[in-house]
Write a protein that binds this DNA or RNA. Structure first.
Length: 428
RNA sequence: CGGGGUGUAGUAUAUCGGUAGUACGUCUGCUUUGGGAGCAGAUAGGCCGAGUUCGAUUCUCGGCACCCCGACCA
């Protein structure tokens, strides 16, 4: 993409009322725009990141045979009354239309997915399966805060699994733990993200959260460095400050952001909607459920919090808006523009995502913008390139600079392999 | 929802009960061109409503919005 065509612009200063690092940097760099507290637009650069996050999740959910669907945001009141949550969920947005009919804006989708699958599930032969979606969720947070980390409207991947018994749920649940580990690994936050034991409510001993360590976190977790897992504050007292896996008492305290969670729902939602199946003996049995969420905006903001520095954003390669930031430094020698364009077209032809800063600006401004936007590699084309035949390549994360010739550079850029999931679902 | 704070050009800020200033941005021209450049000119502003006052952006009250702490929550 040619940067001069980008309708957004960077800013030197963040809005004075923003305190959160993710909000400051993302607004300055033109990745997002705040419409109101906790409600954000994703602009071209930000949307690219969001879509990469989404695609990684999609690949991994497909790999565990999840079937993608899209459910509505406008939910009939009756569905929420069936589970009782119309009255008990304090942060549910309720809207009524001119006919007086009441609806909920989807805060989560158990109330929709259960009646949906009920139409198709009647036999043990129909189980197990799982469905997932990427959908905006609405929750009336009394206090939206921390930039895009806690919004009133946010995008979530929510998956729901349906099983004939708890053993089958347990197997799938364990598979999802591994799936999630791969997802966070691919986001570039694997090392900072811990499987965290959390309260399970009335249906199981634990649920699990995925918590990413960053100072911006709202949660306190206790990390066992032996098992690379953590315990949430809410159950640490019950656990007597010991790791539930290995008994280690030396837990490390950190603040973290909850980027995902997995729950065994069991019959919590299948029961009120009477979602059941006939077993081998023809007897009705309740369907056993699990649910699995990842907050995309949370991941987005958490990555900014975890890696952003005083100069701007720093994107892990897997979710960067572009692979390469091509920066031309203009001089009296007009051929720089021509050379850059040729090189740009060559990279594009190789299937490489390039943002080309073709604006008529001075070098300092372009470098500052490049640091702010945070694309993993910056390649500079200047008069020097023409006279010496060398390109300068700089890694945003490390600041490491090297001078390489054209062929080396292309070879290097192409060698930066992104992780892919080769475990395709056999039935999809 | 309880407590606290803040609302001035596109952005960041200053001043003031009587003509609202600066920087960046944007526009014009010239010069510059490897870390947010220089000169000259231009552009653009008091959240909303009521009250006090000869006069309110400033003081008072109400509303709204945003931010922070807490509670709640992904």
């Amino acid at each position: 993409m040619r940067q001069r065509t980008l309708f957004t612009k960077t800013r030197k200063e963040a809005p004075s009322d923003e305190v959160a690092k993710n909000a400051k940097l993302l607004i300055r760099a033109g990745f997002v725009d705040k419409l109101q507290a906790g409600v954000y637009s994703y602009l071209p650069l930000g949307l690219r990141v969001l879509k990469k996050i989404e695609q990684i999740i999609r690949e991994e959910m497909n790999a565990v045979c999840g079937q993608e669907i899209l459910m509505p945001s406008l939910h009939p009141k009756e569905n929420w009354q069936t589970t009782g949550r119309w009255d008990t969920m304090d942060d549910l947005y309720k809207v009524s239309d001119t006919s007086g009919r009441e609806n909920a804006l989807g805060a989560t989708h158990e109330e929709i997915v259960v009646p949906l699958v009920k139409q198709f599930v009647s036999s043990y032969r129909d189980l197990p399966f799982s469905v997932y979606q990427f959908q905006n969720k609405f929750r009336m947070e009394l206090r939206a805060k921390s930039g895009i980390l806690r919004g009133r409207e946010f995008i979530m991947k929510d998956m729901y699994s349906f099983h004939k018994d708890e053993t089958d749920l347990k197997n799938f649940y364990d598979k999802m733990k591994k799936s999630y580990e791969r997802v966070f690994e691919r986001f570039g936050i694997g090392e900072k993200t811990y499987l965290t034991f959390a309260g399970g409510g009335s249906f199981s001993k634990y649920s699990h959260e995925f918590q990413t360590v960053t100072p911006a976190g709202e949660d306190t977790i206790y990390i066992c460095d032996i098992c690379h897992i953590a315990i949430n504050k809410e159950i640490i007292e019950d656990q007597n400050h010991t790791c539930p896996l290995c008994g280690n008492k030396n837990l490390r305290t950190e603040t973290a952001v909850e980027v995902g969670n997995i729950f065994e729902l069991k019959t919590k939602y299948s029961a009120p909607f009477d979602l059941s199946y006939k077993d081998e003996e023809g007897k009705d049995q309740p369907v056993i459920m699990g649910c699995y969420g990842i907050g995309l905006g949370r991941v987005f903001g958490t990555v900014v919090e975890a890696y952003g520095d005083d100069k701007g954003l720093v994107w892990p390669r897997e979710i960067a808006p572009f692979a390469v930031h091509l920066v031309e430094i203009l001089s009296a020698n007009i051929r720089v523009r021509e050379e850059t364009e040729k090189f740009y077209n060559e990279l594009i032809g190789q299937g490489i995502d390039v943002l080309w800063d073709d604006r008529d600006l001075r070098a300092g401004e372009k470098f500052a913008d490049s640091d702010l936007i945070g694309i993993p590699f910056r390649v500079v084309v200047s008069e020097k390139t023409l006279t010496e035949g060398k390109f300068e390549i700089k890694a945003r994360a490390t600041g490491e600079v090297s001078m390489v010739d054209r062929d080396e550079l292309i070879k290097f850029i192409k060698s930066v392999k992104l992780k892919v999931n080769t475990d395709a679902c056999p039935t999809l």
